[in-house]
Design a protein around this nucleic acid. Structure first.
Lengths: 241, 241
DNA sequence: CTAGCGTAGTTGTCTAGACAAGCCTGGTGC
DNA sequence: GCACCAGGCTTGTCTAGACAACTACGCTAG
């Protein structure tokens, strides 16, 4: 029955996650000493488990008082979504794509800077119309770093990021810059916008753990139907949906 | 000379921060064993210090290989900025304000939902034109929860958040929703926008540690001169500038 | 009734070890 | 030259304690 788990602290963390789900914000959780007795481990191990959930903002601790359930963020963040597909799934919508253009081209200067390659180098790119529940949502133009140009072959209508992982590339960090501007004629047509329609324009660079750039993407969202949801924490962290 | 520091691990963390600043991304950092010898502490204490910097994404660790300097994020995140003032300071700009309106009013339904109070209740609100280096940047309308209505008295042209802290209220979490739309006539005038100008519209609720809402704010940024910069991390965390 | 004190419980910091598991390197045997 | 293995490094997991700092609570003395 019991899953074979190598780590005692993960086992305790799982138990704590269940407790947090059952209880209400502000409720008192078992003390470290009690957890260590319950699970037959040393206090440092129990403490380790508690600290994991603390980092996830599921609970907070007060010296001398105890450990308490934190208020739930509106949608629970399980990890920052670096991809459109993930982001839509989290909202309960079905993501799909229509490929507008796909191939190789000389990269623009902004791509070269973002990816750290020579200006004018040959790169794979992919422009897609992204839909959520069949409604046009965004135009996305992705330029791939030479290392991962191979994924372009593996793209159907799916996620670039699934293809990345299949190649052993792990996208783990991204920088993004979000701005807004009036839509161009082509954007109005593709996204079915009104005459005075605006687009939310996101320029994003995705890196692996070592900081090697994998992808430079510019996404233009239909401003009248797309919103960014953001969770911010003061000390550290936050996430974006 | 040496600052009186209660915690050994903070001392080690400071030393590591200096090392990270001097070295280059990818460089090898001292092992836990070496740190514990250098500082005369047990390995667990040295490890604690390393883990702090790992959480801040300043370094990453590989089992069996060692600890390495992480690539620097474009602007180093020291904490998520929950306030306009902080956000501008981080960009090296001087934030100022012109108060447009200030007083008490019956709150709108959206405010009531966000702050968890009765619709139509009397609340303090504050509408300001926010400037960066004397240039109009945003219109901000803040509605304060009854608990912290007092801060409205302490506002000159400064930061609401400084006033919060002075009252012992610690803003520690926020949810935000960002969208874009064409600017209204009044927005075009105040923000000095072109006829087809758009605004980036951010609706934010700020909470203290226990999840009590402190403030509900709607900020409309001039889209042609303001951008959101975002750092995202896959596993956990991120921040917003 | 109130002010102060002590006690028990909590998290925070720290020790001095142990073994496991992943990684690299150098040497050995073929 | 090449494959394999052992040793020594690293981080990961875990123990069984210790004392400090902080909080809440009840008791006692005034």
């Amino acid at each position: 029955m019991a899953r074979a788990v190598a780590n005692r602290y993960e086992e305790i963390a799982t138990h704590l996650r269940e407790l947090v789900a059952e209880l209400h914000p502000g409720d008192l959780l078992p003390s470290e000493t009690e957890l260590s007795r319950q699970f037959g481990v040393s206090r440092m191990t129990a403490r380790h488990a508690v600290q994991i959930l603390e980092r996830e903002h599921l609970l907070h601790r007060r010296k001398g008082r105890g450990t308490f359930v934190s208020p739930k963020p509106v949608p629970r963040l399980l990890g920052s979504p670096l991809s459109f597909t993930e982001s839509m799934q989290r909202r309960g919508m079905e993501a799909s794509s229509r490929i507008l253009e796909l191939g190789y081209a000389e990269c623009a200067d902004s791509d070269a800077v973002a990816l750290g390659i020579d200006p004018g180098a040959r790169v794979a790119f992919l422009e897609r119309l992204r839909l959520a529940d069949r409604v046009p949502m965004a135009i996305e133009r992705a330029v791939l770093a030479p290392i991962c140009a191979g994924v372009i072959e593996a793209i159907g209508s799916g996620s670039l990021h699934v293809a990345f992982e299949a190649m052993g590339l792990v996208p783990s960090r991204a920088t993004a810059r979000v701005r807004a501007r009036p839509a161009t004629e082509r954007e109005r047509q593709l996204l079915e916008l009104a005459d005075d329609g605006a687009v939310l324009c996101e320029r994003r660079v995705i890196f692996d753990l070592e900081g090697t750039p994998l992808e430079h993407t510019e996404t233009r969202y239909a401003a009248d139907r797309y919103v960014f949801d953001v969770m911010m924490y003061r000390d550290q962290g936050g996430g974006v949906t």
